[in-house]
Design a protein around this nucleic acid. Structure first.
Lengths: 221, 221
DNA sequence: GTTCGTTTTTCACCTGTTGCAAATTTGCAT
DNA sequence: ATGCAAATTTGCAACAGGTGAAAAACGAAC
């Protein structure tokens, strides 16, 4: 009858394989010879499919770099959905975001190795940066909905949006500033923890010469 | 000898006129017949210049919608630069952002009339949304630098970034959620005030059933 | 192996964008 | 007025990303 979602057949397996082949080839070539220097025809050739077929898998050249972001987001949403009762929003969010801050920009830290490379690629190519920001934006909206539902009755949708936006916004911008400045590894993590702290405790606490102790949630892992 | 930056000559005046003609024609046609349905050739024709010339004024089709964002940002930066001594960051920023929250996404509230239209246009066209977010992102980075310099010695660059990101992030996401929900006019302003309040006071204050009184800074004007 | 629904390929075509050289316009000095 | 040099506009060719549609190849079930 309708084999719509079989996941088992050779057909599906082949499709997944092609998808991966395209994504892998693309990202490799992008980082090796540059994004704009790499043509879709070349990517398709490297994956042994026709140029037209590429667009059967990805809607645009940019999208191929974020091939796994949808899955990552679902993961986050699920985590928000089963929050521990009584847990404060700030805590839930820092906990959830800590595991997925990267998935937001496209999934950039499963294996820390290529993570840095992907991030560099994204931030250095305007088109990718734009696509990444749009993805992140949509993710935040979805996240806000999820938070709103997880705290039904306590937090209305726009309040949830404010909370999510504040936290994600702080961490995102601070992280970028940190990277621009040349920080690496742990330094970046510390910055993220600090930024989360700013958002959680509020900007107001930053004026009267605040005792700089970071580690507000438990973001420093 | 070198007439590099005259601003007065007929040459400059004509250039500004063409720029405006292009931008106006473009935005009008975009809203009337749709973004993708409007071709650059048509825009150029409407402004009586060749297609090629369009790219002498704007780097891309998207950019034409944000033709005044650069100027807007400079305004904000200037305001940050001459902060009142002793003024808390949170206060300075809410004050400055209140005047320019729109300029960030491309300048969408000088005259409230077309502001809504532009915003709708931007948010409804993926390509424009992406471009807008990228512009906003860059603006935030610049803003963070400005804040850092305005509070030299008190706030390091990444801290400034955290602060700016938190505030802008909260207001941006809450505003969008509000618009998605169908809010208009004052309702949106109230949401923005609330969001700013969340960022300023900190997410932490949102858990133990907080007394909902908004109006934290002075954002409600 | 035949048949049927899917996926891939081919092909034609449109638009955005860029490089280049030719043509035109403007600013300025005589 | 006129000429000249710098700046701008234009036309043209070419490329890449992206889409629609029909034909060809392929996997699944019988």
């Amino acid at each position: 009858m309708q084999y719509s979602s079989h996941m088992s057949g050779l057909r599906e397996r082949k499709k997944q394989r092609t998808r991966r082949a395209l994504a892998d080839a693309a990202i490799r070539m992008f980082t090796e010879k540059g994004y704009e220097e790499t043509t879709i025809a070349e990517i398709a050739a490297a994956a042994d499919v026709s140029t037209r077929t590429f667009f059967g898998y990805f809607a645009s050249k940019e999208d191929v770099v974020f091939y796994d972001s949808a899955a990552r987001l679902e993961e986050l949403l699920a985590r928000v959905a089963d929050r521990r009762p009584g847990e404060p929003v700030a805590e839930l969010l820092t906990r959830v975001l800590q595991h997925g801050m990267d998935s937001a920009v496209g999934g950039a830290s499963h294996v820390l190795d290529e993570a840095k490379g992907r991030m560099d690629l994204i931030m250095s190519v305007p088109a990718l940066q734009a696509r990444g920001l749009r993805l992140l934006f949509d993710s935040q909206l979805r996240l806000a909905e999820a938070v709103h539902e997880a705290y039904a009755g306590e937090l209305d949708l726009v309040e949830a949006a404010a909370v999510v936006g504040s936290l994600v916004g702080a961490v995102k911008l601070a992280t970028m500033a940190s990277l621009n400045r040349g920080d690496v590894g742990d330094q970046v993590w510390e910055v993220m923890a600090m930024a989360a702290g700013v958002a959680v405790r509020g900007l107001a606490h930053w004026d009267p010469a605040d005792p700089g102790g970071a580690r507000p949630g438990r973001m420093s892992a």
